[in-house]
Design a binder for these strands. Sequence first.
DNA 1: TTGAAAGCGCTACCAG
DNA 2: CTGGTAGCGCTTTCAA
Lengths: 360, 360
Amino acid sequence: MAEKEHITITQIAELSNVSIATVSRVLNGNVSVSPDKRKRVEEVIQKYNFSPNALARGLISKQTKTIGVILPDISNPYFSSMFLEIERSALEAGYTLLLCNTLFGGSSHGIRNTKEESYYFQMMIDKQVDGVLIIGGQVDLTAVEENYKQALKRLVEQLPVVVIGKEIEDIDCIFIHPENGQSVTSALNYLYMLGHRKIAFVGGQPNVTITEDRLNAYKKALQNLGLTVDDSLISLSDYYSQDGYTAMNNLISRNASFTAFLAINDNVALGAERALYDQSMKVPDDIAVISCDQFLTGEYHIPRLTSINQHHDLLARLVITTLINAIQGNANPPKFTITTELVIRESCGTHLGIRNHAAI
Amino acid sequence: MAEKEHITITQIAELSNVSIATVSRVLNGNVSVSPDKRKRVEEVIQKYNFSPNALARGLISKQTKTIGVILPDISNPYFSSMFLEIERSALEAGYTLLLCNTLFGGSSHGIRNTKEESYYFQMMIDKQVDGVLIIGGQVDLTAVEENYKQALKRLVEQLPVVVIGKEIEDIDCIFIHPENGQSVTSALNYLYMLGHRKIAFVGGQPNVTITEDRLNAYKKALQNLGLTVDDSLISLSDYYSQDGYTAMNNLISRNASFTAFLAINDNVALGAERALYDQSMKVPDDIAVISCDQFLTGEYHIPRLTSINQHHDLLARLVITTLINAIQGNANPPKFTITTELVIRESCGTHLGIRNHAAI
DNA sequence: TTGAAAGCGCTACCAG
DNA sequence: CTGGTAGCGCTTTCAA
């Protein structure tokens, strides 16, 4: 494509008969410029629709007003809903987002990137973003690979980084880890209250923090309820519908006996219900289900899905605010509490209401 | 946050006892450098993990290896699946993506940005992206606002731009417009074949190209089948589940009589089915449905959703390839044909197979 | 094959 | 209040 001309500050200076420095001053506001010169300059800027080159600016000011976001898969509602909120806050503060999908994990997803996460880290450094947000991916593995850890360490040495996930030893960045299992506990209590005693756990990748957290909460809650943990009632896989389908089929094929199950999220719940339906079992008539992580369409599902609202919007806002504060050198505000709630709809065969409890 | 040190080319030059120019040469490969110097430099680069500052590079080379993507809402599966494919191709070609959600339209969506699309355009120019991809938003309105048009025009004067949508008069960028209604036609033919004569059209924002295109195809197809177009069978709204719910309720409340409907996409289909179900009408027993635009989970829906696979992945690849070619000044390859297909599953009460036909 | 040096467009400092 | 100017980190002539 033919080079397209950009107007520069130098030209604006010439056209308005002032020095470059003066133009720069009116551009940046704060310092004093005589009203007439200011006016002259502003007119020329207007006329030529001039706007300063962010690259040149960034080269000097050491900030690009750009934030890097690294996550596994934006087509997953969990991540996209977070991203939207993140963008909104970022925009308010004048930041733009560089988005990278690592497609880490996502075995059930057709698309696959060849790049390692460290590749994205380096890119962030090269492009001089002001900070990086890491949501999921390898950070979420219960055992992080050494390679990855080293790459992350290098990144953290160069830039402010906030990761959503559990603290990793020896890595000096901000970790925000909202998961505490509370919500799983209240889901189980609810099922117990309805009379369920054999409750399965479906979906989620093994060795991923979020899965293990919820699984542990599941086990502990069962014990607290005086129920025994039956490993044959646990069927992990991944986070998509297809995985819910597979996981449930595994459960079925091993003749597991249960009257309710927890799904790691709405997508998985959907797939799992399908698998049940294919065996002529219906939700909620034969089996009850609660999803641990509410996506957007559960309200329109048949039956309407009882699920836990993890308030990703709040988490997103917390996370981006924290990063921006870190970038700007402000102290971070005290961590606020994110309340999750069990949203009771129809998939357990009742319709009672909503109950709240605190998390983080 | 405290300034973190970056190693520069100057330091690398000093450390390896060569000139900056030489380091630059080994960095960029092509030119000849004596083997020993090259080796020395490479070692130092390795050791300090040096990687050149993309800002400084961009300032000179006039390219940032960054592409801007402007779309309304990444949490909409239509856009996120496209984005994933776009990113993959971009990555292969060495480009990074700046993503902006304009949240244009999306009345049914909680989040709302305050910025106009022209704001994003200017940002793209400021950040010196190499090209811009515009997918949906105001460009998709059948009547584009003059303001918007002017802003787009300015953008196009500065950068290579590819938009997915119908050509806009007087705007000199590349338009790729895949929609041709073929798929709607074959969906209607299929419904006709199954015996349906009263077929409704549900969802989609009015005055948006994609809606109008499909609606026109719907009307034309009905006529070709010798059926009359009944406006009371058309209920538009927007593209989300909630909108399908609303649109279907409108249909119901006006006592429309129909035995099948076309939904603008899977989300809308979902919401519409819910509305029917709430009135004790079931899909497919009482009403058949075909979705015009397949998302990912239709396969697990109960009943499995019969829908049209628009092959967004191919479109995405076409679009990003076109943009990159434009950026690099290569001629664009001849437009290839994207085949859409009616994927017959269960929501029309039969299970026949798959039929293909061409589009674009 | 190599180094010196001239900028890319901008900010920020220094003098006046 | 204003203009001159030294860079930011890099690429790319131009001589040597």
